[in-house]
Write a protein that binds this DNA or RNA. Structure first.
Lengths: 332, 332
DNA sequence: ATGAAAGCGCTAACAT
DNA sequence: ATGTTAGCGCTTTCAT
């Protein structure tokens, strides 16, 4: 059933070296033999085995994207950027899902040690500096997307600046009684967003001691889930008076918050974060992050580093853009 | 930087065979040597390279899930089932994204020919019988999820029955002027759902010639997108009188349809299809499919076939379940 | 332009 | 319990 390079060589009446050359697009093969080899290969469905190629050539022609698939809403956009960049090459993209339940660092060390790929794109794989250090020591080419580590390439989002922008928008409109729906404290993006929120308020002379900062009780996905937003909003709606506007740590929570408002028949302006696909549909104003671009650029940088071992590190931070939709329409 | 089994063997003062045994959990190693090897390996961050292992052992310990990531809303649930089943083993899951723009069959033949994995799970990778035949001939272990091919294992959804159930629900409530929002004709699931819709109407003696069957003009993702549903609903709302209830080919279209209704301030009962995560949140009634279960069971079957070359084929079709939410609440 | 042969890093008999 | 050695399927000099 399974053919090797020997079978093809024998049937084509050439040596295995020639068959190899054909598949590696070497010019040093006569068109006649090339065609013959290709024809036979096609007939029996032969293709060089990735494993053997990888072993012999020490190039696997594989890029691996490491993603916590199930705990993230925008990886699809990142992935589409990655896929675009990879499609321009003869590399293949393999995706590895880091299991959230299991210890991350162990999984990753094992994965990289197995050397499946020529380079790794870590998408939203938040690790501590010490953990990244351990990973980095494995000496594989890597680019972080949506995280940062000083000794590696990374494309990050300036979470703090994003929150600043959202907060500033409300403040500029003259609103002062703002509230924040945040997520779990241990989430770095959530913490950064909160920081931006508070600093901006401070900058406008608002006393931040009494500012309501709430989160729901549902901690699944670090609190980045609809129920959490729903619960959080209900906490805000228990206040008297209500906040005049709400900055929210994520679109998904904002969606929950909106349904809480709907239930109580109130409309408080709110800005989410992430610009997930759905937000456009429900008219949620939000902070958009250039996810696809980060995927694309990150992959480019990865290839660059694979080609040139000692290329300079690339470290960038993008600032999110405020997208206005109906949830910021009726201010004043 | 990169260590091989020889480095470890030398440093531990043993042969490479022993090192290999340690990593393959052979019992025939004294605890003392095992510890020593493990300690040294850990120190330098050694792990057997997947490529070399795969080549030598003819087992890669890798399962590959082939998914059209960007054109599907429920693969995440399937994936979680797959991941669960794989976590019970010492296999790894790699995910391959079939690019929708490029010719599918070529991509897949090349992928399977490269023999990256011991088995393949094709999720929602709809191909023609002839194409599956071509893939099947490559002699790799495979299970189809959300598609069917007679010579292979598959776990399918009975799209027709699902549509029947939804349609029947409305008919049983006494409604007769039903409409269908469908997707592109070339989409097999869409076609099956339409078939179920029409047959059920026929069964109830409704004249199907004048039944409105519409789709939007946005054909992205075979019409499975919000805009399509929005456009389709507007077509229905141009009718006089309106339909009494709408069966919709997908939740994502139903979401678009709902926003069209909202704009015109009408409320027509509607049932979606897929039960995507969001539907619960917006109260969309829908046909739920056991995606996670299919992923789990499919993976189990795949392993079974890897272990036992001549295990019997497993072919199943699940019937979706009608989930009632607010969009079917106010009937009559 | 083509072939012969030496690895790539590992596993799995077969020895001891 | 441990070592020796022959491959696994391919790429890549080095010949010719």
């Amino acid at each position: 059933m399974s053919h090797t390079i020997y079978d093809i060589a024998r049937q084509a009446g050439v040596s295995i070296a020639t068959v190899s050359r054909v598949f590696n697009k070497s010019t040093k093969v006569s068109p006649k033999t090339r065609d013959k080899v290709l024809q036979i290969a096609d007939q029996v469905g032969y293709h060089p085995q990735g494993f053997a190629q990888g072993l012999a050539a020490r190039q696997k022609k594989v890029i691996m994207a490491v993603v916590p698939l199930l705990s993230n809403y925008f990886f699809l956009q990142v992935l589409s950027g990655i896929q675009d960049a990879i499609s321009e090459t003869d590399f293949e993209l393999h995706i590895y899902n880091v299991k959230p339940k299991e210890e991350r660092i162990g999984q990753l060390k094992r994965l990289l040690g197995r050397k499946w790929a020529d380079g790794y794109l870590f998408v939203s794989t938040h690790l501590s500096n010490e953990e990244w250090e351990e990973i980095h020591r494995l000496g594989q080419h890597m680019v972080l997307i949506d995280d940062a580590y000083s000794a590696s390439n990374y494309f990050q989002i300036d979470n703090k600046q994003g929150a600043c922008k959202a907060t500033e928008f409300f403040l500029e409109k003259g609103l002062r009684r703002l509230a924040l729906i945040t997520a779990e404290k241990n989430s770095i993006p959530a913490a950064k967003r909160q920081e931006g929120f508070l600093e901006t308020l401070n900058g406008y002379g608002v006393d931040t001691d009494s500012v309501p900062i709430v989160t729901g009780n549902t901690t699944y996905r670090d609190g980045f889930n609809e129920s959490n937003g729903y619960e959080a909003m209900n906490k805000l709606l228990a206040l008297d008076p209500f906040p005049e506007a709400v900055v929210c740590a994520s679109d998904i929570q904002a969606i929950g918050a909106l349904s809480a408002m709907k239930e109580q028949d109130v409309e408080i302006p709110i800005i989410g974060y992430d610009d997930i696909q759905l937000s456009r549909y429900i008219g949620l104003s939000t902070m958009r992050q250039p996810m696809s671009k980060m995927g694309y650029e990150g992959t480019k940088v990865l290839f660059h580093h694979i080609d040139d071992e000692k290329a300079d590190l690339v470290q960038e931070a993008y600032i999110p853009e405020l997208i206005h939709r109906s949830t910021t329409e009726n201010i004043q």
